[in-house]
Simulated scan of single mutants.
Amino acid sequence: MNFLFVADPLELFKIYKDTTFSMMREAQRRGHRIAACVPQDLNWQRGRPVTAVVREIVLGADKNAWFRTEATHEVALHEYDAVLMRKDPPFDAEYIYATHLLEQAEREGATVVNKPRALRDHPEKLAIMEFAEHTTPTLVTRSADAVRAFHAEHQDIILKPLDGMGGMGIFRVKADGLNLGSITETLNKNGAQTIMVQRFVPDIVKGDKRVLVIGGKPVPYSLARIPQGTEVRGNLAAGGLGVAQPLTKEDLAIAEAIGPVLAARGLLLIGLDVIGGSLTEINVTSPTCFQEITDQTGFDVPAMFIDALEASIKA
């Protein structure tokens, strides 16, 4: 099969931990051909299909030169067996425009994973609203008064922007309310932007667990991202320590409740963030942690993903 990965520039990959790289490596191991492009390479013109200027690549063993480009040319997306949208956030206007181009490619016969409409319909912070029974108390608002009332009720809270990634822009405010007004003004731009506020979950000290669900089925291990030192954020990008561990009963219950629902909507791969048995986010754009779980447990997450991808194409 031929796979096209729409991702960040290959030169920026950190292959020792990059999930997209692990997908590529497993696909090539099975004999599939690989191409890559960035969203900027997507084009549409009336009377023509959606195309991209792509790099046909082959992976090698050299960590410093881990791929070589065999050819660069313009290709219609529907000529690939699957197009994998793996662009990292931010989920901004350009990301949304890319999903519209990919959706047009779908109308022309392309298979796109994850499905572009589903990517738009499930923003990673707000998607939890549909599954509120699994979440910690949460508020979505522009109102500073609503934030103050939420803090008065719950005393210890987390505030975060809706478009953040990797722990960016996350603040904790304890019972003393220190700097609550200033933090709220900073995040909501004096009422111009919507933010999310959640009751602080003390079990964060045990890790912010990434639970992967592939084709509606949970990977049997999570990656608990444990905050270090005085840091409240467990995100690996914020210095958290990643520790793979078997799913708990609570993790499994959440994954089994949400996974099949979102898989049926075209989300082949999702990453659930779970703290202390509470769902905090649903990651759909480019969920990670394949390599960390595989390296620590021996469970081959990339193989599970490519199995599911191949099955979805043949279905």
Rank of each mutant, 00 (worst) to 15 (best):
A93R: 11
W66G: 06
N64Y: 05
E56I: 03
V53Q: 08
L59R: 10
T72R: 02
L84G: 04
D62M: 12
M85D: 06
F91Q: 06
A76E: 13
D88C: 02
E74H: 09
T51L: 04
V75L: 13
R86G: 09
M85F: 02
F67I: 07
I57T: 02
A71C: 07
L59D: 01
A71L: 09
E79W: 13
M85V: 01
T51Q: 03
K87E: 03
R86A: 08
H78Y: 06
V75E: 13
V58S: 14
V83E: 02
D92Y: 15
F67S: 02
E94Q: 13
R68H: 15
A93W: 15
V75T: 12
E94D: 14
I57D: 01
R86L: 05
R86Y: 01
F91N: 03
R68C: 12
V58H: 15
A61M: 14
F91E: 09
E56S: 03
E74V: 13
E79G: 04
D92S: 10
E70G: 06
A76C: 07
T72D: 06
I96P: 08
V83F: 13
V75N: 07
L59N: 05
V75G: 03
L59Q: 05
A61D: 15
A52L: 09
T69F: 10
A93V: 14
L77A: 00
A61W: 15
E79S: 12
Y95H: 11
I96Y: 13
Y80H: 09
A71T: 12
P89N: 03
F91D: 12
L84Y: 03
N64M: 10
L77P: 00
Y95W: 06
L84M: 10
V53S: 07
E94T: 08
V58L: 10
A71S: 12
E74L: 10
A82E: 02
D92Q: 11
I57P: 03
A65G: 12
R68I: 10
E70M: 09
T72Y: 00
K87I: 03
T51S: 04
L59T: 05
V83P: 00
W66M: 11
E70A: 13
E94R: 05
V75I: 14
T51F: 01
E94H: 09
E56D: 04
Y95C: 09
W66I: 10
K63Y: 10
W66K: 08
F91K: 01
E79R: 09
E56T: 04
A82V: 13
E70F: 06
I96E: 11
V83D: 01
T72E: 12
V54K: 00
A76I: 10
V58Q: 11
F67L: 03
A93T: 13
K87G: 05
V83A: 10
E94C: 12
